[in-house]
């Protein structure tokens, strides 16, 4: 009995010892990571405390103990609001479109750009395509509305010049076009930027593989299919999973700036709704409830995506 206890004791002790030894050995590494752990804690974990607001009738200026607690009231109001479902539909529709095109097009672009032999042309194209990333949405929205205008807009002029339409078409006034316009302008803005990571991954592939493929008689497309794409598959997966995590948090700048009263039923997104009905009206609790909903959905999506990929490809980001 005694010996067993002693053994257990020494085992525990030795485990502790080993842990401290470990820490001691790698103390520099620990010290170096400390600021970043603190940073994550302060900026990503501490704010979660603010979630308590969603269960109160929060009034600024009062201390935490003076707030009135209301339980799930704000969530009930939220889920009973028709507008919320409309907004949720718009958010998901635009994010899925964004994911579908905004994710595949940069890959295709990166692969095609990689095949370009002329290095000067390649570099210029790359720079030109990622520059729009730095243009603010305010400016992009201005350009898009101007281009789609019925009053001398270049798209309408072009379509009329080609004889495809007889009179200018009101792109911006059609509800059904709004999601498309947002997606296309987003692709224009972000395609080059998002392609950078794929270009980098492609650059890291072993040239010997291509040479071997050539010897075996593989053409350009065969090389892309059998070497380039499998080579960057891990990168693609990681980026995809991270994107899925952000699916519901698509921001609101583009929707707010491109929308107008006629298309608002297809333009309002969750973040904008939270802004208008939460912070905008001083309903901080309601806004927080929307925020919590957002975060929870994001986390679920992220785990789902990661789980699926783990299962089929044995790769994961977590």
């Amino acid at each position: 009995m005694e010996t067993a206890k002693e053994k257990a004791h020494t085992r525990g002790e030795s485990r502790m010892n080993r842990f401290w030894k470990h820490v001691k050995n790698q103390k520099l590494l620990y010290a170096m990571s400390l600021p970043f752990v603190a940073w994550v804690f302060v900026f990503n974990y501490l704010p979660v405390w603010g979630w308590t607001m969603a269960f109160q009738n929060f009034r600024p200026g009062l201390s935490f103990l003076e707030q009135e607690w209301v339980g799930l009231e704000h969530f009930i109001t939220l889920f009973q609001d028709e507008r919320f479902y409309m907004v949720l539909r718009n958010t998901l529709a635009m994010s899925f479109l964004g994911l579908l095109f905004g994710f595949t097009i940069p890959i295709i672009f990166a692969v095609l750009l990689n095949e370009v032999r002329h290095s000067m042309f390649k570099r210029i194209t790359q720079t030109v395509t990622y520059l729009p990333h730095f243009v603010s949405w305010v400016v992009v929205a201005g350009i898009v509305t101007k281009m789609l205008s019925t009053d001398g807009g270049i798209i309408n002029d072009l379509l009329m010049g080609l004889g495809i339409i007889d009179s200018p078409y009101q792109f911006m006034a059609q509800e059904k076009w709004f999601w498309g316009i947002v997606t296309i302008s987003d692709i224009w803005k972000e395609m080059g930027w998002n392609a950078i990571i794929f270009l980098a991954a492609i650059a890291g592939l072993d040239p010997q593989l291509y040479e071997a493929a050539k010897v075996d008689g593989a053409g350009r497309f065969r090389q892309i299919w059998h070497i380039t794409l499998p080579g960057i598959r891990p990168t693609i997966l990681v980026v995809l999973i991270l994107n899925i995590g952000h699916l519901i948090q698509i921001g609101f700048e583009k929707q707010m700036l491109l929308s107008n009263p006629l298309v608002v039923d297809y333009a309002e997104v969750l973040d904008l709704y939270a802004l208008n009905y939460g912070i905008g009206l001083g309903q901080f609790s309601y806004g927080t409830a929307i925020g919590i909903f957002n975060s929870v959905v994001s986390i679920i999506l992220l785990f789902l995506a990661n789980g699926i990929f783990k299962r089929y490809s044995n790769q994961s980001v977590m």
Binding site: S149, D151, P168, N260, P261
Partner: peptide, 12 residues
Amino acid sequence: LDPETFVQKSDQ
């Protein structure tokens, strides 16, 4: 009525 009345931005 200008068809763009409800679509245009202030600068337009």
